[in-house]
Amino acid sequence: MGKHTEVQSHRACTIGLPNGLLYAHYQVLWNSFFAGVGLQTRNSGPTNREILELGNECSIDETCLSAKLYLGHVRSLLGTCDYILVPRINSWGRQRDMCTRFASLYDLVCNTFRDSGQKFLSCNIDAGKKLTEESAFVQMGEELGFSKKIAENAYHQAKKEDENQWKLRLRKEEALYREKGIKVMIAAHSYIIEDDYYGKPIADYLRSLGLIPIRADITDRKEALKQSLKVSPTLKWEWNREIIGSLQMHREQIDGIVLVSAFPCGPDSMTDEIVSRHFAPLPVLRLVLDTQTGTAGIETRLESFADILSFQKKGGLAQ
């Protein structure tokens, strides 16, 4: 007996990865980690109308759109895999908090789908309790029956892979600032802007209008954290700090900002206000997405925003 046989018996085990919230940040790390220990993963696929409805039905009404979509993704995976991964992340350190929804996520999912018989896998990161990302991954590996050594190796491999891919993405995104044309930064959580149903169409539409959309969340994160304090000294949410710091780093290189938030979003309800105040007179368009949001309304607003920007670029309004 021992760890080895355990691993063998887990060969057929599949981990479900809901394609929402943390997935946007973690897909490379998760996929390579599970591949590293020899487990299969199953993704819930792109968000669509059906996922939205599945999520909407089982969510508390006042929950943010992103969490509703997430629950839809989880629900579509129920019964199709041995475990569904639902991490819990509380904080990365002082003044580096997550929105409280990420602290509740695991228990929220377990309580919502309590009667489904589905098993959920946690991965708990909480700097205040000295639980780092690495220790969380190792513990998760051990829970799945792997030895500490195997889990550690898989994590380090995955982390390397993740860092390499991130560097590539970052280089590509930063090249956009050097392009000629009207540049608009999209300030949105990664899971919103990467969502196939809600976020991606916004960037696509901006492109079709001849603008160059650039994602604020793909940035030199360390520098962005530092810069965010210049905009807002007590801002405490890690990902909002990255986005706001990124805006600050690039404000001279862009022509406008599009803020995209889920409705209702705790952190964004406050930071959107800070952005509008701090980055004036840079034009800012604020889009708030909810379950009722239709493409037509958004497109009209993007069009008139594009008009303003091109007018201004020609020296129109500013004079």
Binding site: E62, L108, N111, T112
Partner: peptide, 16 residues
């Protein structure tokens, strides 16, 4: 208060 994130999230627990 309306839209209070952490308290919305315990509602499924209270339902159970």
């Amino acid at each position: 208060s309306a839209d209070c994130t952490p308290e919305i999230d315990i509602m499924p627990v209270l339902q159970n």
